Simulated scan of single mutants.
Amino acid sequence: MAKPMTKTQLVAALAEEMDTDKKTAAGALDAITGIITKEVSAGGAVTLPGIGKIYCRERPERMVRNPATGEQIKKEADKVVKMTIAKALKDSVNG
């Protein structure tokens, strides 16, 4: 498996694709990240065309097991961020 792309590499690729400097590309990436974070934190969802949908899902209170001791513990309800991958991206990876 290839190493994941770092933020620096992503900014450089974005700057090249946008035909602009790295500072502008970094600002655009930070703005997108901020918008997604704000929307998902508020309980909404963001669809990135061709990539997927990022959303927040609430998990109910449940019983979990401590792997070290085997003891059952009650875990409070919480929220988890999920992402559904777009069919176009799945097809491009598999095809």
Rank of each mutant, 00 (worst) to 15 (best):
A77W: 13
E39K: 11
T47N: 07
N94H: 12
A31D: 08
D78I: 09
T84Q: 15
E58G: 07
G27A: 05
E17Q: 10
D78T: 07
E17F: 05
A88E: 11
K79H: 04
T33Y: 07
Q9E: 14
E39Q: 09
M83R: 04
I73R: 04
D78E: 06
G70H: 08
G52F: 05
I73V: 12
T37D: 04
M83N: 00
I85E: 00
G44Q: 03
E39N: 10
G27V: 12
D21A: 05
D21N: 10
Q72C: 07
L89G: 01
L89Q: 04
V64H: 05
K82S: 15
E76S: 14
K90S: 07
L48R: 02
S92I: 05
K87Q: 14
I36C: 02
A15P: 11
D19S: 12
V93R: 01
A86R: 01
G43R: 09
V46H: 13
G95R: 01
A12H: 05
G70D: 10
T84N: 04
E71D: 09
I54L: 05
S41A: 13
A77Y: 06
A86V: 00
R62Q: 06
V64R: 08
D21Q: 09
A28F: 13
E71L: 07
P60I: 08
M83K: 03
P60E: 11
Q9P: 02
M83T: 08
E76L: 15
V81C: 01
T47A: 06
I51V: 12
E58M: 12
A68D: 14
I36S: 02
P60R: 06
E71H: 03
V46M: 11
E16M: 03
K23V: 05
I54D: 05
E16Y: 01
